[in-house]
Measured scan of single mutants.
Amino acid sequence: IRCIGVSNRDFVEGMSGGTWVDVVLEHGGCVTVMAQDKPTVDIELVTTTVSNMAEVRSYCYEASISDMASDSRCPTQGEAYLDKQSDTQYVCKRTLVDRGWGNGCGLFGKGSLVTCAKFTCSKKMTGKSIQPENLEYRIMLSVHGSQHSGMIVNDTGYETDENRAKVEVTPNSPRAEATLGGFGSLGLDCEPRTGLDFSDLYYLTMNNKHWLVHKEWFHDIPLPWHAGADTGTPHWNNKEALVEFKDAHAKRQTVVVLGSQEGAVHTALAGALEAEMDGAKGKLFSGHLKCRLKMDKLRLKGVSYSLCTAAFTFTKVPAETLHGTVTVEVQYAGTDGPCKIPVQMAVDMQTLTPVGRLITANPVITESTENSKMMLELDPPFGDSYIVIGVGDKKITHHWHRSGSTIGKAFEATVRGAKRMAVLGDTAWDFGSVGGVFNSLGKGIHQIFGAAFKSLFGGMSWFSQILIGTLLVWLGLNTKNGSISLTCLALGGVMIFLSTAVSA
């Protein structure tokens, strides 16, 4: 259960009878995928790494000078000259100064003066180019299975845990398959586009800190620079940016070097996208990844198990997540596992009318040892309800109150669905055939309105939902006002479609 501690969480529900669903994975976010007769899966884009970055340009932001020398000439005696002028490691300046009897010249006039100092770069920052084909995306998957609280967001041991898996995709191999043991396998067909235009970005490294910066900004930095990788004795261009020549006297000129420019660069980098280094690879934390999940090989585990009949206890007080759902960790005293956990939410304890829904599909106890633990997640209705676990006299209950409203949740879900469709863009549509167009249209309606429909009408039977949709269509056909007619027709059509397409 990876997503319960992530604030940016998206719930995606598969269409009834569908074998695939489109998701948008982004750094700092987590996606929970639910479908009829399929286990619930949490998917998170953990890291995006980039390798084989080529150094484009380096800037010196802290330097020192040494070996200063000057040469001067009297008027009419030609130009002052130093051998160091031809050495690229030196920074030199030529000027004219007033000369006369007082400073060793027989004539009054302008004399030539040249001053040089050896330039040494102490600290530099480097910009590297990123090729999209060198990106690698690491995705962690977790099935809502027989897990306890100690396994949440624990990325170790996934090789031997059938509840978890790690997959890596690249532009050259965008397809992967996550093996989930008894739950089958989940196929991923990803489109490795981060949403960032790397043709316009460089990877900047300064003092063990890293950013993504725009090329134009990078090339306009007014500091000494050299092109390409460091060859040991780089040729620094624009050395004068960190060196200041003071007022010249008759035979000498003082040279000083400016202080470190790291603070000024940090100020200019305010708002830039931060990154990290992992050995020789860069780690990015921006952008998104679009994936199509193929769920035809994914299956529920323990459908044929019998119900657990022994007593359950709450190991922890049920807690609310950031998303309005409830996490419950229970301990089973029996030894008759594997068995299914009898769990439901009810409005009252007399009729036990089921409300809400299970995020953890078909929760089971897989071990036959005593005191096995299991964590599950529920989506309670707004208002008061009861969490009921167990059967008969051994069942345990917990009162729950959820604040908020169904309308607010439906609106929030619609906005999130619209954002998801905007990110998917043209990849969500198939114009290759008439059937493809209608299929894409259905998927689009489901992406945007599916979660809201589930919130508003999830407790009704599909037949009642179709009746309401048919009534809206009838009202649309018999209303003389054009805008009201079109609105009723659209709402009725969407409702009829979703009542037959969205899983219960």
Rank of each mutant, 00 (worst) to 15 (best):
F198R: 00
L107P: 14
P338F: 07
I445C: 14
T327Q: 07
A248C: 04
G324S: 13
M15T: 14
V167S: 00
K297M: 11
I359H: 10
Q85T: 03
C105E: 06
V23R: 01
A69F: 04
Q261Y: 12
L471A: 08
G444P: 05
G282K: 05
C190L: 03
V326H: 04
I407G: 02
D348V: 01
T76D: 09
T76P: 01
T47N: 02
S86N: 03
C60E: 06
E370Y: 04
M34I: 08
M34K: 09
L477K: 04
T170C: 07
N371T: 10
G408D: 07
P39R: 02
C339I: 05
L378K: 05
I466N: 09
V423Q: 14
S64V: 05
S58H: 14
V23N: 04
A275H: 03
P338N: 06
Q447H: 12
F198W: 08
M375K: 03
V143T: 03
A428H: 04
K283M: 15
N478H: 14
E244A: 09
K409S: 04
A333K: 02
G271H: 12
E13R: 01
I65S: 01
T254M: 08
G334K: 08
L135E: 04
S461P: 13
F457K: 12
V434W: 14
C60W: 06
F453D: 06
F463E: 03
D220L: 03
T335E: 14
Q350F: 04
M15E: 04
T254I: 15
A270D: 02
S72A: 15
Y305H: 13
K166T: 14
N439S: 14
R252V: 03
S149A: 03
T32G: 02
A413H: 13
G404C: 04
F453M: 10
N478T: 06
G78P: 00
D348E: 15
S142L: 05
G334F: 04
D161V: 03
G459F: 04
I1N: 03
G232Q: 10
G324M: 13
S461L: 03
G356S: 01
T49F: 01
D336E: 12
W429K: 03
L201A: 07
P354F: 00
D37V: 00
T126Y: 01
F312N: 08
T179S: 06
S129G: 07
T366F: 04
Q77V: 04
T179V: 04
K110D: 06
K316E: 13
G263H: 11
I4H: 06
I341E: 09
A504T: 13
D247Q: 14
M374E: 01
T313G: 10
V23F: 13
C339M: 10
L378M: 10
N172H: 15
T194A: 14
G390S: 01
V167R: 00
P132H: 01
Y61E: 06
G493C: 12
W225H: 06
H219G: 00
S260G: 07
R175M: 12
L441M: 14
H323V: 03
G18E: 07
T48N: 06
L96A: 02
K395E: 08
P342A: 14
G184Y: 08
W20K: 04
S7D: 06
S503L: 01
S129F: 05
Y137W: 10
I365K: 03
S51D: 08
A241I: 12
I359C: 06
V41L: 14
S122I: 04
V114I: 13
I484N: 04
I152W: 11
P171H: 02
L475G: 03
G459W: 08
L180P: 04
A63H: 08
K294L: 01
T40M: 10
H266Q: 15
V23P: 01
D67F: 05
V502T: 10
N371K: 08
V21Q: 01
G127W: 02
G383N: 10
G100N: 07
G444Q: 11
A410F: 11
L376Y: 02
T327H: 06
V23G: 01
K419E: 11
N238G: 13
H399Y: 06
S16H: 09
G145F: 07
E329A: 12
T205C: 04
G111F: 06
D384T: 10
L491S: 10
